[in-house]
Amino acid sequence: MSDDFDFRLREAAMDWLAVRTNDGTDPIRSDELADFHFEGARFRLMDAQRGIRKPKELSAALSIRTVYSPDGASRPYKDEMGDDGLIRYKWRGDDPYHSENRALRSAMEQELPLIWFFGVGVATYQPIYPVYLVAEEHDEHQFVIVHDALRGLVTASAHVEERLREYVMAESKRRLHQPVFRATVMRAYGTQCAVCALRHGQLLDAAHIVADSEEAGIPVVRNGLALCKIHHAAYDARILGIRPDLTVEIRSDLLIEVDGPMLEYGLKERHGQRLMVVPKARSEKPDPEMLLQSYERFLTAS
């Protein structure tokens, strides 16, 4: 197939995903991916059995996949951020000449955009796109990935200037970790606010129990809460606290304050009440130790 076919296919696939996922905000189920058609024919964007999708019509990989694993379970291929702030994607197996590794290498050499389907639930994926492979680390059996926003800014290196490294890390978290964290938390909470059960996804955030700026603030669902924007802001401002037993508290000075209906019904009325929504799976419920760490800070502001 021609380079023009490759370009049109990738562009059409990413445009379609933008529509189906609200510009990459929402996850997509694997069965929904079957709806994609290109030039009148159904075309698979993700390989159901393999981590790397290389269509026979193309000379290089089109997409990569990271399977979902519940918190605490290890993935068969561990994809992590390096010291330089860049993300790594593991080879298929140990053979550098495996057809799938060669397909990734070809995408890197041609500087082609890829779609990364990151598992956030059973048969549910958060698409991250476009991403590019910018280097290969043979000894570690992995490729180095950057989001389009970082393309051309850095290459894989252990000697990145500190301020640039901090920026790259922040961007990598924002472009990959945050969408994946949000999608995982929203799925676990059924796209409802834990405090008030509001269901409108556009008004909900995935809040960290322990801030992601702290060492313990890892982007996993047990360190997350689905909160509406009001309750998220109140939680971060230490106006609202959540005890390890999942009981909501409102800061004492707010309880005696007289204001409008939002304070009265949106905050004060929730004082002493249990969270209205919690994940069903025990492995996804809020971590009590993380809640305690956050609650103790709430008490210092009360």
Rank of each mutant, 00 (worst) to 15 (best):
N22G: 13
V185S: 15
A12P: 10
P219R: 03
Q142P: 01
R182A: 15
E264L: 11
A158T: 10
M262E: 06
L58R: 11
S63D: 14
M14V: 09
I242N: 04
N22A: 14
A170E: 05
E39L: 10
Q273A: 10
R29E: 14
T124Q: 09
A211V: 06
R165L: 11
P288D: 01
A34C: 09
R182F: 06
A226W: 09
S2Q: 09
Q192E: 03
Y167H: 02
T124W: 00
R29F: 14
S283N: 02
A123V: 02
L62I: 06
E161L: 05
R199K: 13
P179M: 03
P288E: 09
S252L: 14
M81W: 14
H141G: 00
A12E: 09
K280T: 12
T66L: 04
R175H: 09
I115R: 09
V120F: 12
E215N: 05
S63H: 12
A48D: 14
L299R: 14
G152F: 05
A233C: 12
I218L: 14
I128E: 04
R165G: 04
A211L: 13
D47C: 07
A206E: 06
E111P: 00
T155W: 01
G224P: 05
K56R: 15
T124A: 12
L176N: 08
H231S: 04
R274K: 15
Q273P: 00
R53V: 04
Y295L: 11
Q49K: 14
R274S: 03
Q126I: 13
L114P: 08
Q178R: 10
D26A: 08
A13C: 03
H159S: 15
V120L: 03
T21W: 04
D139C: 02
E269I: 03
R65H: 13
E32C: 15
L275G: 02
K54G: 15
R102C: 05
H138R: 15
R187L: 07
N223V: 05
L227C: 10
P113I: 04
D6Q: 14
L263A: 08
G224I: 11
R251F: 07
R10I: 12
A183Y: 12
L104Q: 01
E296H: 01
I218H: 06
Y295T: 01
V195R: 08
K54Y: 11
S63K: 14
V131W: 05
E140K: 02
L176T: 03
G82Q: 10
F43D: 04
V19S: 15
R297I: 08
H271N: 15
M186R: 08
P288M: 07
I28L: 15
C196M: 07
A149C: 12
P279R: 06
V19T: 13
G121Y: 12
P244Q: 03
H98M: 01
D259W: 07
A170L: 10
Y132Q: 04
P244A: 13
G152K: 01
G93E: 09
H138W: 00
D94P: 00
Q126H: 04
M46I: 15
D205A: 12
T66G: 12
Y97N: 09
R238G: 03
R175L: 13
L176M: 08
Q110S: 10
R8W: 03
T124C: 10
A34V: 02
Y132W: 06
Y125D: 02
Q49H: 11
G201W: 02
A301Q: 13
R10D: 05
V277R: 08
F43V: 11
T66W: 01
D259T: 13
